[in-house]
Design a protein around this nucleic acid. Structure first.
Length: 427
RNA sequence: GGAGGGAUGGCAGAGCGGACGAUUGCGACGGUCUUGAAAACCGUUGGGCCCUCACGGGUCCCGGGGGUUCGAAUCCCCCUCCCUCCGCCA
């Protein structure tokens, strides 16, 4: 959520930011107008309240002194003012919820350094690491769904029987590989990131705090009967972990990592990537996340990115890092780096991590604050996060990259300890 | 699921219609005393919004929402959450 005060004081730069995303900045006018009216109204209401209050005190005093007649006159006066006041209060309430509704749907402003552009095509490739796509051999040019089916480690057909299309089931060594990946990702980060195992069903407020609601209702699985939502990422519970709290400055930054299932309806992508693991409704992911002082955000952004990157590198995958352009940025983000791994079997770069800096956008929604040392009052925190490891696409890339002539798949060195020493997956 | 009891400041815990944003205790912070520390004593110790360059002022907040009243932490209604007991169950 943007700070209304920013809209009030520097409307122009807010409009520019919204426009850079390719969205219509007209909504800013409506917000500014509502805000002005609301402030006029509350000023009037507050003045009336103050008057009612002081008259009421006077009434109390008169009653105690037994001066009933005078008290009765004042009561009438106060009652009239009170009615006027509650009328203003009602209107103010309406305006303020209207204002909040609008604000909740306005995306974050892209950071200045965020590249211009209107779509995916304009994202900037910052660097590429590992083997060239062209260097992969014929043995590696088999899509993971075929590799996996030959080995019996992925059972899409039966998953569909249980849950419908775009659900998958890993079996045998495939299931072990999922577990190995998650454990590896947790272990590599639990040095300074506190490991958390949060709930995966959350209340509406929790989804609102990260920006997943109200704008993206169609993307989320809802359990209507109990008014709960299935999380699309651990970012959701981890961000709300500190909701409505005021942290001491010396406890910052706070770092968390969590392995959870993630649930996405993928509503807008019917018919896209329907085979294999490229797009599924339920998957495992290890997320790392931090709360920090605004000034520390750039360092943490770099830290999270480098942790995500080094893990992919150690798995032996080729990857590239993209600096997302303003038009392709997620709604809550100010700046995002994507990591894409090259999967030779499907001959494509797969997004496996999104490392985002949200500024105070989510923290404002979540009411996540800290108390500056020595200073007065409270400040809003910044939040950042990134996928340490999103299982399905990494799994897919791994089995394609490590496939040998005979159809077996070698297990990367770093994963072997987590797979009871298995070096090769054979049928 | 049934029956009761709760929700107040960092924590503990008063308050039961009028000067209560809230007695008090603990904790924390500052000071006095002390060679230093402890003890003792004194003082400070919430958040949101609005107006103001600032000093300062106004208003809201006693789980959330509505109501009664000139006036609500206090009375009424609804909701949520927590605790205890019973039942069920991994």
């Amino acid at each position: 959520m943007l700070d209304v005060r920013l809209i009030r004081s520097d409307q122009e730069s807010v409009r520019t930011g919204i426009a850079r995303r390719g969205e219509d900045p007209a909504v800013i006018d409506r917000v500014a107008d509502l805000d002005t009216r609301l402030r006029e109204l509350t000023a009037k209401r507050d003045a009336l309240r103050a008057e009612v209050r002081s008259i009421s005190n006077e009434v109390g005093r008169l009653f105690r002194e037994g001066n009933r007649d005078e008290a009765a006159g004042l009561q009438a006066e106060s009652k009239a003012l009170g009615e006027e006041e509650s009328e203003l209060d009602r209107t103010a309430g309406e305006l303020s919820s209207e204002l909040r509704e609008l604000l909740l749907r306005i995306p974050n402003l892209p950071a200045e350094e965020c590249p211009d552009g209107s779509s995916e095509a304009d994202n900037v490739v910052l660097r590429t690491h590992g083997a060239e796509p062209a260097s992969y051999g014929d043995a590696q040019r088999v899509p993971h769904w075929d590799v996996a089916e030959d080995l019996g480690i992925l059972d899409v057909q039966r998953a569909v029987k249980l849950s419908g299309s775009m659900f998958v089931m890993y079996r045998g060594a495939g299931a072990q590989l999922v577990r190995a990946l998650c454990q590896l990702a947790l272990d590599r980060n639990s040095d300074i990131y506190e490991e958390v195992r949060p709930p995966t069903l959350v209340r509406t407020d929790t989804m609102v705090a990260t920006g997943h609601l109200p704008k993206f209702v169609d993307e989320a699985y809802q359990i209507e009967r109990d008014d709960l939502w299935a999380i699309p990422t651990a970012e959701v519970p981890l961000t709300s972990l500190g909701r409505d709290e005021i942290l001491d400055e010396d406890s910052l930054p706070r770092r968390f990592c969590a392995h959870t299932s993630c649930f996405r309806r993928e509503a807008g992508s019917a018919g896209k990537d329907t085979r294999g693991l490229l797009r599924v409704h339920e998957f495992d992911k290890v997320e790392i996340l931090a709360y920090c002082r605004p000034g520390d955000a750039p360092d943490l952004h770099a830290e999270i990115l480098s942790r995500a990157e080094s893990l992919i590198a150690d798995l032996g995958l080729s990857y590239r890092v993209l600096d997302l352009c303003a038009g392709d940025l997620g709604a809550s983000s100010r700046r995002t780096f994507d990591i894409e791994v090259y999967a030779p079997g499907v001959d494509d770069w797969l997004e496996v991590s999104s490392v985002s800096w949200f500024g105070d956008y989510q923290a404002r929604r979540a009411n996540l604050r800290y108390r500056p040392d020595g200073g007065k009052g409270t400040d809003v925190l910044h939040t950042l996060n990134g996928s340490a490891l999103a299982v399905p696409r990494v799994w897919a890339a791994l089995v394609e990259v490590n496939r040998r002539e005979d159809g077996s798949v070698t297990v990367p060195e770093v994963l072997r300890p987590y797979m009871r020493g298995t070096e090769v997956i054979t049928p």
